[in-house]
Simulated assay, not measured.
Amino acid sequence: MIISLRPGEKIYVNGAVLRVDRKVSLELLNDVTFLLESHVLQPEQATTPLRQLYFVVQTILMEPGEALAARDMFRTLHGVLVGTFERQDVLAGLAAVERQVGAGRPFDALKSLRALFPIEDAILRHSAGEVSPCAA
Rank of each mutant, 00 (worst) to 15 (best):
T47M: 10
E9M: 05
L61N: 12
A96I: 05
P133V: 13
L124F: 13
S132K: 06
A128G: 14
Q45W: 01
R125P: 01
P133E: 08
H126T: 13
A103D: 14
R71W: 03
L26I: 14
M1R: 12
E66G: 00
G93Q: 02
D31E: 14
L68W: 11
G65S: 09
P49N: 10
R71H: 10
P7L: 12
V82E: 13
Q45M: 13
A16S: 12
A122L: 06
E130G: 01
Y54V: 01
L124I: 15
G104D: 04
L94W: 00
G129L: 03
V13R: 04
F117N: 07
R6H: 10
L50G: 02
G102I: 07
D121Y: 05
C134P: 00
L124N: 11
S127T: 12
F55A: 15
M62P: 00
T84M: 11
Q58K: 08
A109P: 00
V131S: 11
V40R: 11
L35W: 01
P106G: 04
R51V: 04
L35H: 00
G104C: 07
D108A: 11
T84A: 09
V90N: 02
A122W: 02
M1V: 12
P118A: 14
V32S: 13
I60D: 01
L81K: 08
F55C: 00
